[in-house]
Amino acid sequence: MSLDHLEILLKRTQGSPVDLSMIHPDLIHTDIIEKTTLHSSQLRSLAIVLSPNRYYIPIMELPQLEKLQIHSNHLNSSVRHILKIVNDKAPKMVTLYLELHASTDFPLAEVARHQFCYRLRNLYLSTGSKGPSDPSAPVIDLPELETLTLIGKPWQLAYMTLPNLLSLTIIGGTKKRNQKVIPPHFPTSITKLHLDHVRFAAYTSTAVLLPNLTHLDLRYPSIESTLDPHFMMPALETMRMDSITYNSAFRSAPEQSALSALFSGEGVLQDLYSLRRLLLEEIHLETTSCTVFRGIPALEEWELRGCSLPHDLAETLAGKATGRDTNLLARLERLHVKKCWSMSETAEQVEERVRATSAQFRPNLQVFFTENQTEIM
Protein backbone atom coordinates (compact mmCIF):
# COMPACT_ATOMS: atom_id res chain seq x y z
CA MET A 1 0.00 0.00 0.00
CA SER A 2 1.40 3.42 -1.00
CA LEU A 3 1.36 6.42 1.30
CA ASP A 4 -1.19 8.20 -0.93
CA HIS A 5 -3.46 5.15 -0.90
CA LEU A 6 -3.28 4.90 2.88
CA GLU A 7 -4.03 8.59 3.30
CA ILE A 8 -7.11 8.38 1.05
CA LEU A 9 -8.44 5.35 2.95
CA LEU A 10 -7.95 7.00 6.34
CA LYS A 11 -9.64 10.21 5.21
CA ARG A 12 -12.65 8.27 3.90
CA THR A 13 -13.24 6.74 7.31
CA GLN A 14 -14.02 10.23 8.69
CA GLY A 15 -12.96 9.33 12.20
CA SER A 16 -14.73 5.93 12.29
CA PRO A 17 -12.97 2.92 13.88
CA VAL A 18 -10.35 1.33 11.59
CA ASP A 19 -9.00 -2.25 11.42
CA LEU A 20 -5.46 -2.07 10.04
CA SER A 21 -3.16 -4.93 8.96
CA MET A 22 0.51 -4.40 8.08
CA ILE A 23 1.43 -7.86 6.81
CA HIS A 24 4.26 -7.00 4.39
CA PRO A 25 7.10 -5.74 6.60
CA ASP A 26 9.40 -4.94 3.67
CA LEU A 27 6.86 -2.39 2.43
CA ILE A 28 6.44 -0.65 5.78
CA HIS A 29 8.39 2.60 5.55
CA THR A 30 8.84 5.47 7.98
CA ASP A 31 6.35 7.72 6.19
CA ILE A 32 3.63 5.04 6.37
CA ILE A 33 4.26 4.51 10.09
CA GLU A 34 4.10 8.28 10.69
CA LYS A 35 0.83 8.59 8.78
CA THR A 36 -0.63 5.68 10.75
CA THR A 37 0.48 7.36 13.97
CA LEU A 38 -1.43 10.54 13.07
CA HIS A 39 -4.62 8.47 12.76
CA SER A 40 -3.86 5.98 15.55
CA SER A 41 -6.77 7.24 17.64
CA GLN A 42 -9.08 5.60 15.04
CA LEU A 43 -7.52 2.14 15.28
CA ARG A 44 -9.86 -0.56 16.59
CA SER A 45 -7.55 -3.45 15.71
CA LEU A 46 -3.94 -3.59 14.57
CA ALA A 47 -2.09 -6.56 13.04
CA ILE A 48 1.59 -6.10 12.31
CA VAL A 49 4.25 -8.45 10.92
CA LEU A 50 7.69 -7.35 12.05
CA SER A 51 10.75 -7.84 9.86
CA PRO A 52 14.13 -8.90 11.32
CA ASN A 53 15.35 -5.36 10.61
CA ARG A 54 14.65 -2.94 13.41
CA TYR A 55 12.60 0.16 12.65
CA TYR A 56 11.26 2.83 14.94
CA ILE A 57 7.62 2.80 15.99
CA PRO A 58 6.58 6.10 17.59
CA ILE A 59 4.26 6.43 20.55
CA MET A 60 0.63 6.14 19.43
CA GLU A 61 -2.60 7.23 21.05
CA LEU A 62 -4.87 4.17 20.99
CA PRO A 63 -8.08 4.99 22.85
CA GLN A 64 -10.22 2.66 20.68
CA LEU A 65 -7.82 -0.26 20.22
CA GLU A 66 -9.44 -3.58 21.22
CA LYS A 67 -7.31 -6.15 19.38
CA LEU A 68 -3.56 -6.39 18.76
CA GLN A 69 -1.72 -9.00 16.65
CA ILE A 70 2.08 -9.15 16.52
CA HIS A 71 3.95 -11.64 14.32
CA SER A 72 7.72 -11.73 14.69
CA ASN A 73 10.59 -14.21 14.49
CA HIS A 74 11.83 -13.40 17.96
CA LEU A 75 10.94 -11.55 21.10
CA ASN A 76 12.91 -8.43 20.18
CA SER A 77 12.94 -4.80 21.27
CA SER A 78 10.27 -3.86 18.71
CA VAL A 79 7.83 -6.41 20.18
CA ARG A 80 8.51 -5.17 23.69
CA HIS A 81 8.12 -1.56 22.58
CA ILE A 82 4.71 -2.19 20.99
CA LEU A 83 3.49 -4.07 24.08
CA LYS A 84 4.54 -1.15 26.29
CA ILE A 85 2.76 1.38 24.07
CA VAL A 86 -0.42 -0.69 24.18
CA ASN A 87 -0.16 -1.11 27.93
CA ASP A 88 0.09 2.67 28.40
CA LYS A 89 -2.18 3.91 25.63
CA ALA A 90 -4.87 1.28 24.92
CA PRO A 91 -7.31 1.10 27.85
CA LYS A 92 -9.87 -0.91 25.84
CA MET A 93 -7.62 -3.70 24.54
CA VAL A 94 -9.09 -7.14 25.35
CA THR A 95 -7.51 -9.38 22.66
CA LEU A 96 -3.81 -10.15 22.18
CA TYR A 97 -2.25 -12.42 19.53
CA LEU A 98 1.50 -12.86 19.92
CA GLU A 99 3.25 -15.21 17.50
CA LEU A 100 7.03 -15.70 17.69
CA HIS A 101 7.89 -18.06 14.85
CA ALA A 102 11.52 -18.88 15.58
CA SER A 103 11.76 -17.99 19.23
CA THR A 104 13.60 -20.53 21.36
CA ASP A 105 11.55 -19.57 24.37
CA PHE A 106 8.79 -17.27 25.52
CA PRO A 107 9.08 -15.99 29.11
CA LEU A 108 5.66 -15.43 30.64
CA ALA A 109 7.15 -12.41 32.39
CA GLU A 110 6.90 -10.54 29.07
CA VAL A 111 3.12 -10.63 29.36
CA ALA A 112 2.78 -10.71 33.13
CA ARG A 113 4.56 -7.37 33.58
CA HIS A 114 1.77 -5.47 31.80
CA GLN A 115 -1.41 -4.22 33.42
CA PHE A 116 -3.53 -5.11 30.37
CA CYS A 117 -3.40 -8.76 31.55
CA TYR A 118 -6.12 -8.02 34.06
CA ARG A 119 -8.63 -7.03 31.37
CA LEU A 120 -7.69 -9.47 28.56
CA ARG A 121 -10.53 -11.69 27.35
CA ASN A 122 -8.73 -13.44 24.47
CA LEU A 123 -5.07 -14.50 24.46
CA TYR A 124 -3.12 -16.35 21.75
CA LEU A 125 0.53 -17.25 22.45
CA SER A 126 2.59 -19.11 19.86
CA THR A 127 6.28 -19.95 20.01
CA GLY A 128 8.63 -22.32 18.23
CA SER A 129 9.84 -23.63 21.58
CA LYS A 130 9.04 -27.20 22.63
CA GLY A 131 11.28 -27.08 25.65
CA PRO A 132 10.56 -27.86 29.30
CA SER A 133 8.98 -25.65 31.91
CA ASP A 134 10.78 -22.61 33.28
CA PRO A 135 10.94 -23.07 37.06
CA SER A 136 11.34 -19.31 37.52
CA ALA A 137 8.19 -18.43 35.56
CA PRO A 138 5.86 -16.03 37.38
CA VAL A 139 2.24 -16.77 38.15
CA ILE A 140 0.17 -14.62 35.85
CA ASP A 141 -3.37 -13.59 36.84
CA LEU A 142 -5.85 -13.42 33.95
CA PRO A 143 -9.15 -12.86 35.79
CA GLU A 144 -11.23 -11.83 32.74
CA LEU A 145 -9.76 -14.25 30.18
CA GLU A 146 -12.37 -16.31 28.31
CA THR A 147 -10.38 -17.75 25.37
CA LEU A 148 -6.81 -19.07 25.55
CA THR A 149 -4.68 -20.60 22.78
CA LEU A 150 -1.20 -21.97 23.53
CA ILE A 151 1.06 -23.25 20.78
CA GLY A 152 4.40 -24.81 21.60
CA LYS A 153 4.40 -24.56 25.40
CA PRO A 154 1.46 -26.35 27.09
CA TRP A 155 3.27 -26.15 30.42
CA GLN A 156 2.32 -22.45 30.70
CA LEU A 157 -1.04 -23.50 32.12
CA ALA A 158 0.65 -24.36 35.39
CA TYR A 159 1.57 -20.70 35.85
CA MET A 160 -1.76 -19.10 34.92
CA THR A 161 -4.70 -18.22 37.14
CA LEU A 162 -7.78 -18.55 34.92
CA PRO A 163 -10.98 -18.38 37.01
CA ASN A 164 -13.32 -17.50 34.11
CA LEU A 165 -11.78 -19.34 31.16
CA LEU A 166 -14.37 -20.82 28.76
CA SER A 167 -12.35 -22.03 25.75
CA LEU A 168 -8.89 -23.65 25.84
CA THR A 169 -6.81 -24.69 22.81
CA ILE A 170 -3.41 -26.38 23.08
CA ILE A 171 -1.37 -27.26 19.99
CA GLY A 172 1.72 -28.68 21.55
CA GLY A 173 3.47 -31.24 19.40
CA THR A 174 5.07 -31.99 16.08
CA LYS A 175 4.58 -34.68 13.45
CA LYS A 176 7.25 -36.81 15.15
CA ARG A 177 6.38 -36.30 18.80
CA ASN A 178 3.33 -35.19 20.71
CA GLN A 179 3.76 -32.72 23.55
CA LYS A 180 2.83 -33.88 27.05
CA VAL A 181 -0.01 -32.13 28.87
CA ILE A 182 -1.14 -32.58 32.44
CA PRO A 183 -4.94 -32.66 32.74
CA PRO A 184 -5.10 -31.40 36.38
CA HIS A 185 -3.87 -28.02 35.11
CA PHE A 186 -7.03 -27.58 33.00
CA PRO A 187 -9.34 -24.93 34.53
CA THR A 188 -12.63 -26.51 35.60
CA SER A 189 -14.56 -23.53 34.19
CA ILE A 190 -13.89 -24.43 30.53
CA THR A 191 -16.77 -25.34 28.23
CA LYS A 192 -14.65 -26.00 25.10
CA LEU A 193 -11.36 -27.92 24.93
CA HIS A 194 -9.28 -28.40 21.75
CA LEU A 195 -6.08 -30.46 21.98
CA ASP A 196 -3.89 -31.00 18.91
CA HIS A 197 -0.86 -33.35 18.90
CA VAL A 198 -0.72 -33.83 22.64
CA ARG A 199 -0.19 -36.87 24.83
CA PHE A 200 -1.74 -37.31 28.22
CA ALA A 201 0.59 -37.81 31.15
CA ALA A 202 -0.37 -40.46 33.71
CA TYR A 203 -0.26 -37.76 36.37
CA THR A 204 -2.91 -39.15 38.64
CA SER A 205 -5.03 -42.26 38.94
CA THR A 206 -8.11 -40.11 39.64
CA ALA A 207 -9.96 -38.63 36.68
CA VAL A 208 -9.95 -34.85 36.32
CA LEU A 209 -13.47 -33.47 36.63
CA LEU A 210 -14.42 -30.97 33.93
CA PRO A 211 -18.01 -30.29 35.04
CA ASN A 212 -18.83 -27.57 32.50
CA LEU A 213 -17.19 -29.03 29.39
CA THR A 214 -19.66 -29.31 26.48
CA HIS A 215 -17.29 -29.53 23.45
CA LEU A 216 -14.15 -31.70 23.21
CA ASP A 217 -11.89 -31.76 20.13
CA LEU A 218 -8.93 -34.18 20.09
CA ARG A 219 -6.69 -34.04 17.00
CA TYR A 220 -4.05 -36.79 16.76
CA PRO A 221 -4.11 -37.63 20.47
CA SER A 222 -1.58 -39.94 22.05
CA ILE A 223 -3.02 -42.11 24.83
CA GLU A 224 -0.44 -43.68 27.12
CA SER A 225 -2.47 -46.03 29.30
CA THR A 226 -5.52 -48.22 28.92
CA LEU A 227 -6.38 -48.08 32.60
CA ASP A 228 -5.83 -44.62 34.05
CA PRO A 229 -8.82 -42.30 33.58
CA HIS A 230 -8.13 -38.72 32.56
CA PHE A 231 -11.42 -36.92 32.11
CA MET A 232 -14.84 -36.96 33.72
CA MET A 233 -17.18 -34.86 31.57
CA PRO A 234 -20.79 -35.08 32.77
CA ALA A 235 -21.97 -32.15 30.59
CA LEU A 236 -20.21 -33.16 27.33
CA GLU A 237 -22.47 -32.79 24.27
CA THR A 238 -20.13 -32.79 21.24
CA MET A 239 -16.86 -34.63 20.67
CA ARG A 240 -14.46 -34.96 17.74
CA MET A 241 -11.43 -37.24 17.52
CA ASP A 242 -8.95 -37.46 14.61
CA SER A 243 -6.64 -40.49 14.53
CA ILE A 244 -5.15 -42.05 17.65
CA THR A 245 -1.57 -42.90 18.55
CA TYR A 246 -1.38 -45.84 20.96
CA ASN A 247 1.52 -46.01 23.38
CA SER A 248 2.52 -48.33 26.20
CA ALA A 249 -0.17 -50.92 26.99
CA PHE A 250 -2.40 -49.53 24.22
CA ARG A 251 0.09 -50.44 21.54
CA SER A 252 -0.14 -54.17 22.15
CA ALA A 253 -3.86 -54.24 22.92
CA PRO A 254 -6.40 -55.42 20.34
CA GLU A 255 -8.09 -52.57 18.50
CA GLN A 256 -11.41 -53.29 20.17
CA SER A 257 -9.89 -53.25 23.66
CA ALA A 258 -8.07 -50.00 23.01
CA LEU A 259 -11.15 -48.20 21.71
CA SER A 260 -13.28 -49.70 24.44
CA ALA A 261 -10.95 -48.19 27.01
CA LEU A 262 -11.75 -44.81 25.48
CA PHE A 263 -15.48 -44.94 24.86
CA SER A 264 -16.91 -47.58 27.19
CA GLY A 265 -17.35 -45.02 29.93
CA GLU A 266 -14.98 -46.87 32.22
CA GLY A 267 -11.57 -45.85 30.85
CA VAL A 268 -9.76 -42.71 29.75
CA LEU A 269 -12.94 -40.80 28.88
CA GLN A 270 -15.63 -41.07 31.53
CA ASP A 271 -19.17 -39.78 32.00
CA LEU A 272 -20.13 -39.68 28.32
CA TYR A 273 -23.80 -40.13 29.17
CA SER A 274 -24.82 -36.69 27.89
CA LEU A 275 -22.85 -36.92 24.61
CA ARG A 276 -25.19 -36.20 21.69
CA ARG A 277 -22.82 -35.76 18.72
CA LEU A 278 -19.65 -37.75 17.94
CA LEU A 279 -17.31 -37.21 14.97
CA LEU A 280 -14.53 -39.72 14.31
CA GLU A 281 -11.97 -39.27 11.54
CA GLU A 282 -9.31 -41.65 10.17
CA ILE A 283 -9.82 -44.32 12.83
CA HIS A 284 -9.84 -48.04 12.02
CA LEU A 285 -13.11 -49.45 13.37
CA GLU A 286 -13.71 -52.54 11.20
CA THR A 287 -12.21 -54.99 13.67
CA THR A 288 -14.29 -53.51 16.49
CA SER A 289 -17.90 -53.87 17.50
CA CYS A 290 -20.36 -51.05 18.07
CA THR A 291 -20.48 -52.27 21.65
CA VAL A 292 -17.24 -50.37 22.33
CA PHE A 293 -19.41 -47.24 22.31
CA ARG A 294 -21.68 -48.48 25.07
CA GLY A 295 -20.60 -45.54 27.22
CA ILE A 296 -22.52 -43.16 24.92
CA PRO A 297 -26.16 -44.16 25.40
CA ALA A 298 -27.67 -40.81 24.34
CA LEU A 299 -25.86 -40.50 20.99
CA GLU A 300 -28.07 -38.74 18.42
CA GLU A 301 -25.65 -37.82 15.63
CA TRP A 302 -22.65 -39.92 14.57
CA GLU A 303 -20.27 -38.84 11.83
CA LEU A 304 -17.53 -41.09 10.43
CA ARG A 305 -14.93 -39.58 8.08
CA GLY A 306 -12.26 -41.71 6.42
CA CYS A 307 -12.89 -44.55 8.88
CA SER A 308 -13.46 -48.23 8.33
CA LEU A 309 -16.91 -49.05 9.66
CA PRO A 310 -17.55 -51.31 12.67
CA HIS A 311 -18.23 -54.83 11.38
CA ASP A 312 -21.61 -55.03 13.13
CA LEU A 313 -22.89 -51.53 12.33
CA ALA A 314 -25.80 -52.80 10.21
CA GLU A 315 -26.78 -55.40 12.84
CA THR A 316 -26.64 -52.81 15.61
CA LEU A 317 -28.85 -50.40 13.67
CA ALA A 318 -31.30 -53.28 13.26
CA GLY A 319 -31.38 -53.76 17.04
CA LYS A 320 -29.70 -57.16 16.86
CA ALA A 321 -27.03 -56.44 19.45
CA THR A 322 -26.88 -59.01 22.23
CA GLY A 323 -27.28 -58.84 25.98
CA ARG A 324 -27.30 -55.53 27.77
CA ASP A 325 -26.39 -53.68 24.56
CA THR A 326 -29.67 -54.43 22.78
CA ASN A 327 -30.65 -50.75 22.76
CA LEU A 328 -27.26 -49.54 21.58
CA LEU A 329 -27.59 -46.54 19.23
CA ALA A 330 -31.34 -46.62 19.86
CA ARG A 331 -31.48 -42.81 20.05
CA LEU A 332 -29.40 -42.25 16.91
CA GLU A 333 -31.16 -39.79 14.58
CA ARG A 334 -28.46 -38.95 12.01
CA LEU A 335 -25.60 -41.05 10.64
CA HIS A 336 -22.99 -39.43 8.35
CA VAL A 337 -20.61 -41.70 6.44
CA LYS A 338 -17.93 -39.82 4.47
CA LYS A 339 -15.03 -41.45 2.60
CA CYS A 340 -15.47 -44.63 4.62
CA TRP A 341 -14.31 -48.08 3.58
CA SER A 342 -14.15 -51.74 4.40
CA MET A 343 -11.43 -54.34 3.82
CA SER A 344 -13.87 -56.89 2.44
CA GLU A 345 -16.45 -54.69 0.72
CA THR A 346 -16.41 -51.77 -1.67
CA ALA A 347 -17.67 -48.43 -0.46
CA GLU A 348 -20.82 -48.95 -2.51
CA GLN A 349 -21.49 -52.34 -0.86
CA VAL A 350 -20.97 -50.86 2.61
CA GLU A 351 -23.31 -48.02 1.75
CA GLU A 352 -25.98 -50.34 0.37
CA ARG A 353 -25.88 -52.65 3.40
CA VAL A 354 -26.27 -49.78 5.88
CA ARG A 355 -28.91 -48.07 3.76
CA ALA A 356 -30.99 -51.26 3.40
CA THR A 357 -30.80 -52.02 7.12
CA SER A 358 -31.78 -48.49 8.14
CA ALA A 359 -34.65 -48.40 5.63
CA GLN A 360 -36.04 -51.69 6.98
CA PHE A 361 -35.50 -51.28 10.70
CA ARG A 362 -34.92 -47.54 11.27
CA PRO A 363 -36.99 -45.62 8.67
CA ASN A 364 -36.73 -42.41 10.70
CA LEU A 365 -32.93 -42.53 10.79
CA GLN A 366 -31.35 -39.94 8.48
CA VAL A 367 -28.37 -41.55 6.73
CA PHE A 368 -25.99 -39.42 4.64
CA PHE A 369 -23.32 -40.86 2.31
CA THR A 370 -20.91 -38.50 0.56
CA GLU A 371 -17.54 -38.88 -1.16
CA ASN A 372 -17.13 -42.59 -0.31
CA GLN A 373 -14.00 -44.25 -1.58
CA THR A 374 -14.30 -46.66 -4.50
CA GLU A 375 -12.86 -50.16 -4.68
CA ILE A 376 -9.87 -49.06 -6.79
CA MET A 377 -8.91 -46.36 -4.32
Rank of each mutant, 00 (worst) to 15 (best):
S342C: 03
P297K: 02
K320F: 13
T288M: 01
K339L: 04
H311E: 12
L328D: 12
C307S: 06
R305I: 14
G323Y: 02
R353I: 11
T288Y: 00
V354I: 15
A314S: 15
E303I: 04
R353W: 06
D312F: 04
L332M: 02
L328Q: 12
S289C: 05
W302S: 05
V350S: 13
T346E: 04
P310R: 11
R294A: 12
N327C: 10
C340A: 09
E315D: 15
S342E: 02
G306I: 01
L309K: 06
V292M: 07
L329Y: 14
A347E: 07
T316M: 08
R353S: 14
E315T: 11
K339H: 08
R305V: 14
K320H: 08
T288L: 00
R294G: 10
E333T: 06
K320N: 12
D325A: 14
R355H: 12
D312H: 05
E352W: 06
T291D: 04
K338C: 11
E348K: 11
E301T: 10
L328A: 13
T346I: 00
S342W: 01
K320S: 06
L309D: 08
S289Q: 08
R355Q: 15
W302I: 07
C307N: 13
D325Q: 12
A318W: 02
S308H: 02
F293T: 04
E352F: 05
T322F: 07
E315I: 08
R294Y: 05
L329P: 14
R353C: 04
S342P: 01
L335I: 00
T291G: 08
G306K: 08
R324C: 11
L328C: 12
S344M: 10
C290T: 13
A318S: 13
T322P: 06
E301Q: 10
A318G: 09
R305Q: 06
C307L: 07
S308K: 02
L309M: 15
P310S: 07
I296Y: 00
Q349S: 09
W302N: 05
L313C: 09
E315M: 14
R305E: 08
L317C: 04
E345P: 00
V350A: 11
R324T: 11
D325K: 10
T346F: 01
R294V: 04
L329Q: 09
S289H: 06
L328P: 13
R324K: 14
E300K: 13
C290H: 03
C340P: 04
E351K: 15
E348Y: 10
D312N: 14
M343K: 11
L317A: 04
L329C: 14
E333Q: 08
